[in-house]
Write a protein that binds this DNA or RNA. Structure first.
Lengths: 143, 143
DNA sequence: CCGCTACCTGAACGTCACATGAACTCTGAC
DNA sequence: GTCAGAGTTCATGTGACGTTCAGGTAGCGG
């Protein structure tokens, strides 16, 4: 076996082939080419792709995922402990995210209590100390 | 005072005027027009806009936000208890979101323990029972 | 009444993360 | 050797969420 085709990787990971090509363009995954210019993937790519998809489900951007993946060794196939190190880092990330949502939730609760939504002191109107003023969605996941 | 200009609403809420016009196109907010065709907003619009922004920070789409806002009374200015009802609904939403992230986090932990990332039984590879296979980002916020 | 700033519309542009389609080539089972 | 099906590149489309620009109008202090 000289490597997995893009279709095989797609089937095993659930990612679309178009996504796999796109991620390769971005440098998130790598492939070697056959003499006929077709992509062939190492078995370890399955893990990498699974990780990308798991990270996306948490809402992280491909740029951030790429940054995380770049901490894996280039030269050798990543070991379980390489991945474990990454997973520990993600745990911190997820904890942080939970903390932020809880804070917003608690602020909403306090607004329910005081009915103060129009006041300058209301957390809902002045959440700058919790979540900075960024674009939608992604803000929850920023550092 | 015959209402707030778009610039005043923008300044008080932190939203861009272009965003306010866009949200008005979508029906999330309303305005009356002066004889010279300029927008004038009710004071209550400040709350509405603040809510939209708060909801966006949690990652919800404008469509969902619009659905929530449509439960507010059209005829009269929303009271504190109108808003409180909305906030309670959001609390459930945020709790749900936290629960999902926690589940994913715990699954990552189990992967650290077993080093099984490549196995079919690993939660990281088979998270379908946790988060359905949707597009990126928004998935965390789906019903 | 002058002039400055804010405001108006509509269209074009931008980003992210791909999906889709056209036109063509490779691979592998028979 | 043949042929279906899988793979290739490149261009273009999608959808959410706006921003920017062009070309003009409103409103208000002086």
């Amino acid at each position: 076996m000289s490597g997995l085709t893009i279709g095989q990787v797609a089937e095993r990971t659930g990612a679309a082939t178009s996504a796999l090509r796109y991620w390769e363009d971005l440098g998130l995954i790598a492939s070697v080419r056959t003499t006929g210019n077709q992509r062939r993937y190492e078995r370890a790519t399955i893990r990498r792709v699974s990780f990308i998809r798991a990270a996306q489900r948490v809402g992280l951007s491909l740029e951030e995922i790429g940054a995380a993946l770049s901490t894996l060794p280039d030269a050798r196939t990543p070991t379980a402990s390489d991945w474990a190190r990454l997973s520990r880092a993600w745990r911190g990330r997820l904890d942080e995210q939970i903390r932020r949502i809880e804070k917003l939730r608690d602020q909403l609760d306090s607004c329910i209590g005081c009915g103060c939504l129009s006041l300058r002191t209301c957390a809902l109107n002045n959440p700058s100390d919790v979540l900075a003023d960024h674009g939608p969605g992604a803000v929850l996941l920023e550092p």
